[in-house]
Structure formats: C-alpha cells, structure tokens
C-alpha cells in the first residue's frame, strides 16, 4: 500500500478475483440504487424535494429552506437532483465516466447528509426505516463511493475501457484479475 500511495493506482497491486468481484458488485448495487432513485423521482409527478429541504437542520438549514420556499430554485434543484441521480446511476452501472459519476454521487450524498444530519438533538418529522446516530445510510453509501473512488474498476469492467483518453491507470491494477 505504501508504494501505491506514492505512485498512484498505476502501480497498485492487482486485485484478487474476489476483490474485483465485490468491488464491481458494490459499484453495480450503488449504481442500481441511484438509477432507481432518479427514475422514481422523474416518473412521479408529485415528487418534490421541498419536504426534505424544508425540514433541514444544522448550519446549512438556511440555504436549504430558502430553496424549498423558492419555486424557481426548487424546480431547478428537483430537476438537477433527479437527472443527476439517474445519470450517476447509469454511469456507475455501465462503468462509463465512472470517476466523475463517483465524485458527483459523493457530492450529492454529502448534500443529503448535511441537509438533515442525524445529530444528537435533531428531530425530523419524516420517518426513517431505522435508527441512526450521526452515521446513517447516506453516510455509509458516501463512504462506499469513496471506496470505489480509491479502487476504481470502470476502465476494465466498464465502458470507460473504450474512452480514448483512458490509459493504463486502473486497468493496470485490474488487467490480469481473473474475472
């Protein structure tokens, strides 16, 4: 690992087939989740982020509630959010522009998290399906995307393979993995 940090992914050790399998699987699952979240929002005429934003707590609450209250801003945010989720989902699943999709996905999740963090003393009216203290599933999915960013798979197990400017970077690490 020391070597890897020094010289970047190009010199990463090759992953074992099991490691490759779980990394690709993780990418598929997160992509699947994003894609469906996006599609579900786009196909539901009643969907709006207003409720989520209006509930916002913590330092950035002012910005989020302002967006919720402004119809133009809200329309833009809803649009960008739904299409963003959809495109990130496609990117992660197909392994197309994987790195960008991963980073933008992390940014979106980060925004979701800071809009409504499960900190001590914050109570939200929207029900959650579990119990969370500081760490919630949004944060875990964010960390999972960070793993995908650290161990990229798109250039071998994805359409990034055919992007002309993609060189040997992560392919180098994955090239011989037995998948």
């Amino acid at each position: 690992m020391r070597e890897a940090t020094r010289a970047g992914s190009e010199t990463l050790d090759r992953y074992s087939p099991f490691q490759v399998a779980v990394l690709v699987l993780l990418r598929m699952f997160i992509g699947w989740h994003f894609l469906y979240e996006g599609l579900a929002k786009l196909t539901n005429p009643y969907w709006t982020s207003a409720g989520y934003l209006a509930e916002s707590k913590w330092w950035f609450a002012g910005i989020f509630t302002d967006i919720a209250a402004n119809p133009t801003a809200l329309t833009i945010v809803d649009y960008v959010n739904a299409w963003g989720l959809l495109l990130i989902g496609i990117g992660l699943m197909l392994g197309l522009f994987t790195r960008s999709a991963t980073i933008v996905g992390m940014v979106l999740l980060f925004l979701y998290y800071i809009a409504a963090p499960p900190f001590v003393g914050f109570v939200y009216s929207m029900p959650t399906e579990g119990s969370y203290l500081v760490v919630n599933k949004v944060l875990i999915e964010l960390a999972a995307l960070a793993v995908l960013l650290a161990f990229p798979t798109g250039t071998v197990f994805g359409l990034d393979r055919w992007l002309p400017w993609k060189r040997q970077s992560d392919r180098a690490a994955l090239g011989q993995a037995g998948a």
């Binding site: 598929m28 699943m93 197909l94 994805g158 990034d160 393979r161 055919w162």
Partner: peptide, 8 residues
C-alpha cells in the same frame, strides 16, 4: 469484462 454490467 467491459460489458460485465450488461446482466445487471
């Protein structure tokens, strides 16, 4: 390998 996502 590149098309591994297709089944998904």
């Amino acid at each position: 390998k590149a098309l591994v996502s297709l089944p998904f």
